[in-house]
Design a protein around this nucleic acid. Sequence first.
DNA 1: GTTGGTGCAAAGTGTTTGCAACCTC
DNA 2: GAGGTTGCAAACACTTTGCACCAAC
Lengths: 149, 149
Amino acid sequence: MQPELDPHPLRSKGFRLTPQRLAILNVLQEADCHLSPVEIFQRAEERLPGLTEATVYRTLDFLTDQGLALVAHLGSGHLVYETARHEHHHLVCRTCGQTAQIDHAVLETLYAQFQSSTGFEIDTSHVVFFGHCPACLKEMKSKVESGRS
Amino acid sequence: MQPELDPHPLRSKGFRLTPQRLAILNVLQEADCHLSPVEIFQRAEERLPGLTEATVYRTLDFLTDQGLALVAHLGSGHLVYETARHEHHHLVCRTCGQTAQIDHAVLETLYAQFQSSTGFEIDTSHVVFFGHCPACLKEMKSKVESGRS
DNA sequence: GTTGGTGCAAAGTGTTTGCAACCTC
DNA sequence: GAGGTTGCAAACACTTTGCACCAAC
């Protein structure tokens, strides 16, 4: 049964299993949320002193190519990465940056609609919405109130 | 009747109406699509020689704050801007970068669902989806075909 | 005339790259 | 041992900032 037990898809694809790649994968899996390259570097460097940022960038790129990591644009124009393990989506507050997760099921119907109207197939593994969180909404509305009459 | 005819919301808010701001606003409105800061700089600089990139960045930021421009993350981790005039959304191909527009109506139902489940109010002015365009999809599928059996 | 806005140039940030040494296979 | 990976350091692209001058009000 050994061959099927191989825990590292990288090996089976012919890539080398380096401490750097393992450290970064572990960071992503343990964080279980989106992290910026710098955050990933900091956490991985704790486990693997001597790790460099260049390697983090290269590895994140590599892991994304191999389907082991997902990349998204959560705001501020920069990229964030997360493990490819779980199927969920993000809702980001434009005002405070707070994020909420969206259940995958909610989007399924919508995907079908998009696909039939545009031919595009939505990347089911990760979608990001921008909006305003309840707290910021409240604040914005109170400003409007005080503004009129 | 003059006061009510003022065509520039900036003036009425107490901001100055400079050639730079007008040029950049015009570029956004005429492009009628998303542009990167560099593209905006290039186009605006044709109309207003001497314009600098620093001013473009400052102005885009300013216009976004004032609600006259919208900012979005369309891929590659960088920001793009567009006029706040029209209500549409983007679908970006992760493979080739091609974009499609999505009708606003399609999303309205979804927004309601999100709002009730998370309390977030989706930014109705701009949403971006990532996926794969028909052409790239076809290519990806043919690769899978050739890969198996 | 005031004060906000711009140009200029420099610095800052995040990311990529070339190359020799290294380590996984 | 061979070749894929990494560390190092430099280069790179994009964006922001300080300050003096200018122009819109």
